[in-house]
Design a binder for these strands. Sequence first.
DNA 1: CGATCCCGCCACATT
DNA 2: AATGTGGCGGGATCG
Length: 894
Amino acid sequence: ENIFDRSRMAPKTPIKNEPVDLSKQKGCTPERNPITPVKLADRPQPDPWTPTANLKMLVSAASPDMRDREKKKELFRPIENNEQSNTPDSLQYDMVDDNTVDEFEKQRPSRKQKSLGLLCQKFLARYPSYPLSTEKTTISLDEVASILGVERRRIYDIVNVLESLHLVSHVAKNRYCWHGRHNLNQTLKTLQEAGELQYGELMAFLQHKEQDWEYKFGERKKETIPESQDRPLLDFSEPDCTSASASSRKDKSLRIMSQKFVMLFLVSKTKVVTLDIAAKILIEETQDTADHSKFKTKVRRLYDIANVLTSLGLIKKVHVTEERGRKPAFKWIGPVEFPGKTDEPRGHSPMSDPLPRMQRGACAPYQIHATGKQRFTRHASFNVAQPCEGTRRKVSSEPSSPHQKRQDEYCSKMINLAAVCRQKIVEDTRTCATETLNSGKNPGTTPGTTSPLSLLPVPGDFDFCVNTLPQAVFPVVQADVPSIPLQNGVSSQTLHPSMPATSKTENGKPTLLPSQPFLCFPSSSLFMLCGDLQEDNLRETLPTTEDVGNKSAEAPAVVLPAACQECSSHKCTSPSAPAEDEEPAAKRQAMEQSDVPLSLVVPKKSFESPKAESTPGSGCTSAVHLEGFHLDLASPAAPLAADKDSTRPLDSQEREKRLQNKDPDEPSPGKEHMYKENASQPFLPQYVYVQPTAGLSSCNFLFSAKQAPSAVSLTASQLPSLSVPCVMVPSAALASFPLVCSATIASPVSPVPDGSFSAAASMNFSMSSLASTTPVFVGTTAVVNPKVPPAPSVDHQQPTHPTLRLSPVLARSCTAVKLDSPMCMGHPVTLLKLQQPSSTPLTPKSIRPACHEAFFKTPGSLGDPLAWKKNEGTQTRNASSVQRRLEISSTSPD
DNA sequence: CGATCCCGCCACATT
DNA sequence: AATGTGGCGGGATCG
């Protein structure tokens, strides 16, 4: 049509037209003149004539597209339009033609007029930036679309971005709730924190990996733009999904991308992010994929996002001149410092809050408290990893020099990787099972990714994760996977964030990455009681012993980010106040421990809590599941373990087998490993770590020495071999752990160590921190505990689901994801992630560390019988993390 | 010619 | 099945 018109026009003259003409002529725009549309008839008016046009007309009558357009023009570009049109057009003589033409033009405003940015401005103009809290404005997509004269699709683009920043929230079909910018700072802050965490980890990770990576984008590297690139990656996972189910679908990549994009800015020192860098980071796929096409697509999306952000006044377009030339980039012009949490009153506990809040997106303006629904829905929030300061490194803050640039590039790469990984992880989380499998194939694919789940922050994990998960989780895949780190990593990551970067995966060894401080633990079973220690120990040990066992969960918890031991200590330990104190001690211990190579390898068998194991189907892993998480993950864990182990694949395999078999009996050797520190006493953190072997997986735990005694004894019994000072705790113990913090522990776990645990727990963590979030868990955990102990045997039967367990504490931090992977086993698997609240200052961190995942294959593993199963099962899947938690807690009691 | 990015097909999700 | 959502990328337009 257009052409058509044009052609006409052209001949006639290029007149562009005046408004007047337009109006007149345009039939379209009836408003002005009603003139009839003669012209229309005559003219080829596009709109009118076309069927669509007619519709439009009609529509426009109500809410006219045409009008809108015109309005837009006028509104937005009144000036321009006028100028343009007038000037040039005016020249023309041909009135008529002009008219026609004009109309066209009007009708067809230039692209700019139709730009998303403009549209967004219009959109924003309709709502107050800071609406009264009292008034809740709801936005009807249809209505807005018609008013603005655009297709609804466009509105989605805008709203999705706004939603990512919590300016609006999706409340119902076609309805969004306008929150305005009240929460913006909070959101940004959260994103910043999340970004840092991620970034940090990533960085570490990436660095590590860099080599591996080839940059696909090689050229792009340059992106290096100033620092911006670096950072972040974030994961974000936002959640928001309003609907509980929300998470479903791919996750909206646009939302996630938007958050990530924002994170990049917030993380970046320069506040300038080039498009390519951002695109790279956002490309899930990793570099590998890097298809050009993908990259292109991402860039397109970024433009969409950038347009909206620009309209919000958060960024502006700039060009970065690099060596090579100028690259398009965006500069953050929004707020940079976020003083405390914003102001908002919210009282949530710091720990989890941030994310949640965001996610919640309640209608209420700031507050995000969500409405019930949303809360649930939200999945993971951002996971942030913790920020490790250490990690950050120089990355570059300033780009200018070439060196820097290089660094930047480097960073960017890393970032990308990290990002990729994360995404993968996320995805994994969701999809995990399947994905995993896939992952083998496609490393990066993550479509939308998103996992609602939390991520693990842990930096290093990737590798681990990768390996581990895949393997562990999905046996099938595993085989393939192992080799591929990234891919694996992705998946695995999802599971455990924590993993250290260590490369071990591939090797199978747990190696430590030089760069990374963290250790990876394969098995989920491990737990760290003490923050610090763990790391060191872990590293060393882990690899060895655990490999398997620890798995992600633990790792994360324990490990934390590679980069930061400190962090870890903070984080890890942090949870427990004591930890700090302990740290030193812990470290020592760790050292000591390290010596111990895994000391324990005990077969879990018996040890595993019978209960759990016993339960067949559930597999569950232990209590944990029950708890809250239910993480179906177990599998992941397992996989992880396995993978991780790359080193010990065997173990994993064994596990699996066992799982299947469930034999609790089997002592799988090795499965349990305890790390202990010698220290038993002091505070230290000794951990005992148990790895679950096959079914047992759930059982493993680490305990601190202190408490250990009792615990130990218990464990010991189970584990014969242990000589280690450490105590092993059954899953239950774990439960207690977390719980420990809270009181819960005590009771529940009774069997073993409760007391001990509790003691320990108390020692280690002060949990209070945990608390906020934790609380729930705790409860749960407690519940769990009981179960745990018992279930020693697993069933064969339900082999399927592996479950992870988290310590309660962890749980809180962690998110569990469940994977269903049909592929995998058919069992749903759940993964846990650890979140680290990085930001949260608090203790929580420590907690996080703690998390461990347990996975068990269903079969026998743990089984906790009942509860777990329940939880695990579907619920887990469905439920959002929050829900899960809730559920868990509820369930746990059982 | 590269940077932008509109447009809308189409898949997936939800109802 | 209808409808809501939103990924995605062709290809047009801008500069």
